[in-house]
Design a protein around this nucleic acid. Structure first.
Lengths: 130, 130
DNA sequence: GGTGCCTACTTACCAACAGTGACTAATGCC
DNA sequence: GGCATTAGTCACTGTTGGTAAGTAGGCACC
């Protein structure tokens, strides 16, 4: 009861902001895109000129756990960014490929990777200087 | 000693991949860029046509905790993407502004936001269909 | 003919990270 | 004098991601 003024106002403001936030789906999508592994997976799928198998992705990305790879791929599949096709061969084979939507996202992620490649030196210089 | 074959091979492979990973700084930078709040902070600073105060950013971004805002801003400052200027006024005032490097990153993040805005409907349709 | 392996996962557990709310400094306003 | 402000920090808590082991089911090898 002591701090009814500022704290209450701040809490109310946060509530309003949060509902505004929930109404803004592009923010949620941005969150999804900036998921740790999404960019790597899409890039891997884009570099290959065809569908990739689960184990190929796992080897190529090199830091991802099976759990997160599965999880992220399922998310991407649910969002319609990749397709998942199971072939019931001797050991089961699963292929992942980009959908056109996924390819369009890749086109906008590529510049980001390019930026990272070209500006990494400046960043490291800044880190060293700080 | 029982499982020396496949498990050992896999472990060794992972080791090699991890060291390769550590040698690839653009991946680390990509991780940094795809940090949950980095895109939001840079966008906010870019939308305003001048430096922003800590509380302005906090209000504008609307889901970020003070802790994460501070932490992310310190990271960005260390990477040379934003500047932090403290003015010792009555209640201390801190302004954050984009550096040229930060602005160049913003230029490549903007298309990402634009993509999110234009394709959100397709994503939501895919999510509903799955 | 039984042991063990392959793929593509799933699950249990654990550590690290992100969020929450309270607390701080110095000072101006009522 | 007490409360509010700004820009944080701190301790606690919950969620998230990593690790490693287990699972299915057929085949190859000894």
């Amino acid at each position: 009861m002591a701090t009814k003024t500022a704290a209450a106002r701040r809490a109310k403001a946060r509530q309003e902001f949060n509902s505004y936030f929930a109404d803004c789906p592009s923010r949620k999508l941005l969150d999804r895109i900036s998921d740790k592994w999404v960019a790597l997976i899409l890039s891997s799928l884009g570099e290959a000129d065809g569908p990739m198998r689960f184990s190929q992705l796992h080897r190529h990305i090199a830091g991802v756990s099976q759990k997160m790879l599965t999880q992220t791929l399922r998310n991407l599949e649910g969002d319609g960014l990749v397709t998942r096709t199971v072939t019931p061969t001797v050991p089961v084979t699963v292929h992942y490929a980009l959908t056109p939507l996924g390819e369009s996202l890749l086109e906008v992620i590529k510049p980001l990777k390019a930026w990272a490649d070209t500006h990494i030196e400046q960043i490291e210089a800044a880190r060293a200087a700080s």
